[in-house]
Every structure is written in structure tokens, then in C-alpha cells.
Write a protein that binds this DNA or RNA. Structure first.
Lengths: 329, 329
DNA sequence: CTGAAAGCGCTTACAG
DNA sequence: CTGAAAGCGCTTACAG
């Protein structure tokens, strides 16, 4: 009554399990007629090779994980979830193409164990410095790649998120002669923030304005950004543009501008990074950057497979991020 | 150099594999000092039981799938993706609590094979009638549950999405004496549409207005809804409210109202079902329904586990859907 | 051309 | 109290 095994199918077909195996794999010749008979019988009996047994024997990979590193409170909110899930959907597609299942490791509450999870590799999305999920996988020798460089861990393969370029594109767009542009990022040590800040300071030096970069606690979300922006805009009346990579923070900045009566984009220009629904539906709609997340996800899967198979990755080409100008700037 | 096996660990600890196994599982007594020695050694050697082998032996479940049934073009758009991914995030959390990995099966392009996917059960999200993903899993004897009843397949266990109640709540809210309310759903045979339409017709009969329900091709998204609503609103000037369960269609209706100069909510009241970012950020913001998707997802995982283990499910209680009134009504 | 047997890494009845 | 052995369902060298 349970699912039929290869032995049962072999018996029913009057051949050996060896032949059944080869009838399916085609790795050695089987008389066409016997093969047809076996396949027909298999279909009738509902036989499917147990992938677990197959994998145990062959040692091949079957499952990869996509893990978020964000603290639960942040990621569970709709804000970051969009970013993560857009990657997840794409990665799952690509993984399936390679006969891999993509399993989702959501942000973990503290003390959560992944002990029984069986994955052959993992993709970590924009990890922070000393991210526990990174050490978790490294401890158990699970091949690992990340989307966005891992701060302080140059040896971990990654798909570059080009945060420096992205930031520069945004800044060039926001810039007017005599401008003073501000930068709002998050407090965590995430590579995209670090690169953004570096690019920002270089840009300020180049154009000759006094940089002003603030960092907001990511768990605070839009509200925290609203309050910080209120303070920022009151204190620095000369600021005529703000670059806000995190979309939830960007809408917080918009809200602050509105409540201060600073018209966007005439008195204040705002732009963000992730072009999610939040940016598109904000009022005014937010200028954002197309990061080609689908290609990034695909590249991450490819890179992970290469890492698992211990072969050099074929360098995936991800087009440069491109600006999507909207009403906020 | 590869990962150590139980035999290697046993050898190193000077005990039998049996003892190592029991040291970890605790299923029979092992001298505390030997156990400690084994665990310490395991940590040092980086030993982790191979879950594949363990599962092959015990037959236990390890992975469940969350599958979307939507045609690729629809689901890949940001609209439905939010709904699906909100469920995915919650389901993944719950699954992990039960030591199961949740693997994501994205909408499949035609001709895509899942042959090598290894899952012990599957959750299908709001399937349509004769959904191919349903027959796929049924053919291979994979335990299956669905979120939302499967049209025409009463035997498949499901978590009720309470679409009838949801529709009624929306309609009661939109209703004014003398109102004529319209209904906009999708063309596919999805249970939530069928229930919504039934509830709608009953409501119209009850309140004595002439029902007008239209169905839109889901692949058309917001644009298709915009055009259909334009037509609808021009033809039926007496219509003062529209119930639009699909959020992407609802924003299309808003756009149509705007371009016709019909003020929302004064001249036209609009409400939708899924309370995602789209509804929250629409202008005007859309009245929607809290479907408790996190609890729905949790219940689906529980139900699936019960189905896999062939035991009766403990009935999860999902609170009734509750209306979230916003500016659109 | 085909089959019997070994073995992937575990767990658990069965002996001692 | 502990270990040797069987077995989960496959694949693949090895014989014939």
C-alpha cells in the first residue's frame, strides 16, 4: 500500500533492480522493449525513485536554502519581506531548472535550531557582519554564498550588489550645483550600507558639500525614519536632497517632509534603492533603482552550485543598476 | 576531508555507532561520561548526522512544499506574489518549528518538471479547478492539502479561506439603502471567486438590487481591471460601490474612477480582500480584510503534517476575517 | 547484454 | 549496559 520500491517494480517486471535503474537513467543499454515494459509498469504502479535513497547513494545535491539574516522583527514586516521574497521567487525558479529545491529559511527567532534541516548549500541575503546564520552554515561545512559581500569575510563567494555604483547613480541624479545631499542608512553593519556611505562621502568631497549621514535602527522601520528625518530636516535647512537606500526609511522621510511642509520634489528630492511596491506606490512615488534582482538571484544560485561542485563559477553578467525616475526627485 | 560519518566518530570515540546514535537521540541510556565525550568529540570533528540517511532509515518527513498554482505571468507580478509570499514566510516559520524545511515551488512555466523534487507533502495555495499542480502531487501519492477549498475536489483537505464570510463583510460595509454594488473577480475557477460570487448574488437578492458581477482575465492585471471598470462605470451610473477581492484589480478600479472623475469614496466606494502593501499604499488607501494569513499558513502546515502522519488534524481555529476600513469606503 | 552484491550513513530490533 | 547486524531504497562497480 505504501509507495512501490525498485525491488517491487523489478519483481513485477521480471527483471533485476539493476535493469530497472538503468531503464530510468539510461546509463547503460536496456532492450527497448523491456525498457518500455518497465516504464509502463512503473507508471501503472505509481513508482517514483525515492530521491532520498538516490541522493544518499550518489551524494548529489538536492536542496539549497535561502536564508535571511535579518532580525525577525525587521524582516517579518512587509518592508524587507518584499525584497527577500522577490529574490526567493527568482531563486526558486532557477533552482528548479537545476533540479534543486529551494527551501526558505525565514528570519529566525533567537534560539531557533536548524539542526535537522537538510540542505546541500545556502544563499544568505545581505548578511550583516558576524551574522549568526553565516557561522551556522560554516560550522557544519555547508557550502555558502551570499548576495552582497559579507563584511569582514572576503573569502565567502558572493554576488556583488554593486552598492557603490547604485549609490553613485542616485547621488548624480539628486545633485544640483550648490546642493547639499544627505544620506540615511541603517545601523547594522551590512555591506550595502558600508559601501553606500563610502560612495556618499567620496561624492560629497568631490562636489564640495558637507556630508551628513545618519543611521537608523532597522527595527524602528518607517516611524524611526520619520522621527530622524524630522530632526534632520529641521536642523539642516540647506539640505535639498536625501538618498535613502532602505525603502521603508524613504517613505518615513517623505512623511517627515510632508509634515514639515517641505514640498517633494521641489524643495526636497528623495530617492531610494529597492524598487519594490513600496517605492512605486509611495506618494509621491519614489525614484528607485532597478537592481535586477531576478538576475542577482539567478547568479547566486549558479554561484552556489559551482561552489558545491567545487568548480570555478562561470561569471554571470548582471547589467548595471539603472535608475527609475519618479515623482520624488 | 569530507564530513565525518557516524562510523568515524564512533571509532574516534572508541565506541560503537549504536552508542553514538543513542548519545545523540537519548533513546536509550548511555553513560553520562561517554556521552559527554562523544558530544565533545562530535563538536570538534564537526560531525552532524546526515539527515538524508536518517530519514531514509526512519521514513520520517523532512520537507514540505508550498506551491502556487497561478499561471506564471500572473503570480510573477508583484501583485499575487505578496499574498503568496506572506503565506510562504509564515509557513516556513511554522514548518521549521516542526523540524521541516519548507521548499518553495514557484509558478511553473509550461512543461516544467518537478520529477526530482523530494518532498513529503505539499500545500497548494488557492488552486483553480483542475489545477495541474494538484494532479502532479496526487499522481505520485504525495500528501496534499490546500489553502482554500479545491473546486470540484471535496476530498482534498483544506484550510478554509472563508471567502463567503469575507465577501459578506465587505458587502455589508459597502451597503447603503438604495445602493447598487458591483463585483469584480477573476476569470479563473478559483474557489474564492466562486464563493464570493455566490455570496454576492445572495446579498443582492436580499437587499433587492440588480447584481452585476464581471470577471477579468487575471493575466491582464491592473490594466485589464482599469479598462473593464471604465466600461462598467460608464454603463452603470447607478453603481455606487464595488467589491473587488483581487487587490491589483481594485487599484485598477480606483484608477478608472479617478479618470472618470468619480470621487472615491463619496461617489464610489471600493473595497478589496487581501490587505497587502498594495491596498495600504493605494490612493486613496483601500479598505481591505485581515485574513490572518499567518494563522492560515500555520494551520495549513499543521493540517499537512496530520495528513502525512495519517492522523486526524486538530482543528486550528482561525479568527473570522476582520474589516480594515480605509479611505476608499 | 544482464544480474548479484556492495555500499551510501544512518537507526533499531536483536543478541549477549 | 553495549555492540554486531540488518535494513531503509537506491546506484554502480564487478562478475558472468
Amino acid at each position: 500500500m505504501g509507495k512501490p520500491t525498485i525491488v517491487e517494480l523489478a519483481k513485477a517486471a521480471g527483471v533485476s533492480p539493476t535493469t530497472v535503474s538503468h531503464a530510468f537513467s539510461g546509463r547503460r543499454h536496456v532492450e527497448p522493449e523491456t525498457r518500455d515494459r518497465i516504464l509502463a509498469l512503473a507508471a501503472r504502479m505509481g513508482y517514483h525513485a525515492n530521491p532520498r535513497a538516490r541522493r544518499l547513494r550518489t551524494g548529489g545535491a538536492s536542496t539549497i536554502a535561502l536564508a535571511s539574516s535579518m532580525p525577525f522583527a525587521v524582516a517579518a514586516g512587509p518592508s524587507k519581506l518584499g525584497f527577500l521574497m522577490e529574490i526567493a521567487a527568482s531563486a526558486a525558479m532557477t533552482a528548479l531548472t537545476r533540479n534543486l529545491a529551494l527551501c526558505l529559511i525565514p528570519p529566525l527567532r533567537a534560539g531557533f535550531s536548524l539542526e535537522t534541516i537538510e540542505v546541500d548549500g545556502a544563499i544568505v541575503v545581505e548578511p550583516v557582519e558576524d551574522d549568526p546564520i553565516i557561522s551556522f552554515f560554516q560550522d557544519r561545512g555547508t557550502p555558502l554564498v551570499s548576495i552582497g559581500r559579507v563584511p569582514g569575510r572576503p573569502a565567502i563567494p558572493f554576488v556583488d550588489m554593486q552598492s557603490e555604483v547604485t549609490t553613485r547613480i542616485i547621488l548624480e541624479h539628486l545633485w544640483r550645483p550648490g546642493s547639499r545631499i544627505g544620506l540615511v542608512t541603517g545601523e547594522q553593519r551590512r555591506n550595502s550600507y558600508l559601501e553606500a556611505e563610502a560612495a556618499y562621502r567620496a561624492f560629497a568631497r568631490e562636489r564640495g558639500f558637507v556630508p551628513l549621514a545618519i543611521r537608523i535602527d532597522e527595527t524602528g522601520g518607517e516611524d524611526a525614519a520619520y522621527k530622524a528625518a524630522l530632526d534632520l530636516l529641521c536642523r539642516h535647512r540647506d539640505m535639498d536632497a536625501i538618498c535613502v537606500p532602505v525603502d521603508a526609511f524613504a517613505t518615513g522621510v517623505l512623511a517627515a517632509a510632508r509634515s514639515l511642509g517641505r514640498a517633494v520634489p521641489t524643495a526636497l528630492r528623495v530617492a531610494t534603492r529597492y524598487d519594490g511596491m513600496r517605492a512605486r506606490l509611495a506618494v509621491p512615488s519614489l525614484t528607485a533603482v532597478d537592481l535586477h534582482l531576478d538576475l542577482v538571484a539567478e547568479a547566486a544560485v549558479e554561484l552556489l552550485i559551482a561552489t558545491i561542485e567545487q568548480r570555478p563559477p562561470r561569471g554571470s553578467v548582471i547589467p548595471p543598476p539603472s535608475l527609475i525616475v519618479r515623482h520624488s526627485s
